[in-house]
Amino acid sequence: MRKLMTLLLVWVAATTLSATQALQSDPSSSLKFAVIGDAGTGRTPQYEVGERLAAARETFPFEFVLMTGDNMYGSQTPKDFVVKFERPYAALLKAGVPFFAALGNHDNQSNRFYEGFNMRGERYYTHVVRQVRFVILDTNLMDAPQLKWVETVLSQSSEPWKIVVFHHPLYSNARRHGPNVQLRVVLEPLFVRYGVSVGFAGHEHVYERLKPQKGITYFTEGSSGQLRKGDMQPSDETAASFDQDQTFMLVEIAGDRMTFRTLSRVGQVVDSGVVMRRSTN
C-alpha cells in the first residue's frame, strides 16, 4: 500500500512538472510588450519609430506598449494628441494595442484622463497581465499618499513578476540629468524589500541598461522620439547604452526569464539579453 502511494505521488509530481515546463515553453503563455519613452514630439523620428514598432509586431506580437513619460511635448491640445500620439502609432491603435503611460515632466497632469493612455484618471496606478504586476508611478510629485500606495501594492501583490515604470531614473549615466538620488533613497528600499525585478524609466534622451542594482535591473528608455546624441557617459554601473539614434524595446516574459531586445529607429539591435526574476520573499 505504501509503495502504491509513493508511486502515485511520483506520478502526480512528474505530470505537474511536465505541465509547468510545457507552460513555460509555450509561446502563447509568455507575455510580450514594448517600451517607449520621451516619445511625444510629433516629429519624423517619432513617426519612424512608430512604423518600426508596427512592423516589429508582425513577428513579435506584443500585447501592449509601456510609455515611460514625456508622452507629449509642447502644447497639449486635442489636435496634439492626434499629431503626437494617435498618428505615429495609428497602426498599433487600429490593431487594438493598448498603451499604458507614466507621467513625465513635460506631460500635462490632466493627460491622465486621456483614454489612449489607459491611466483611468490616476497619476499612479497598477495593472496585472497574467503573472506580471506593473506599477506605474508619478515621480514628478512623490507625495506621502503615493509612497504609502506603492508600499501597499507591492507588499500585497502575489504575482511573481513585479515591474515598476516611472519617468525619472533612479540610476543614470547620461550627462544631462543623471540619477534622481532623492527618489532612489525612498523608492529603492521598497523595490528591494518587495521583490521588484525590473524598472523602466525615461527622462534621459538615450537608452541605458544598468547592471543589476541591489538585484534590480533598471532600463532608461528615453529616446523613442527625443534624442540627445552623445549624451551617455557610461560608468561601471552601465551594462549597455546607446545614444546615436532613437530606440524602443521589445520585451518577453516567460516563466522566470525576461528576454529583451532594444532596437534603433532603423531596426538595428543595440542591446539584448535576459533578466531573471527576483525572489518575491
Partner: peptide, 9 residues
Amino acid sequence: LLPMGAVLT
C-alpha cells in the same frame, strides 16, 4: 507646498 520629486528639486 511640494512633495519630494523632480519638481521640488
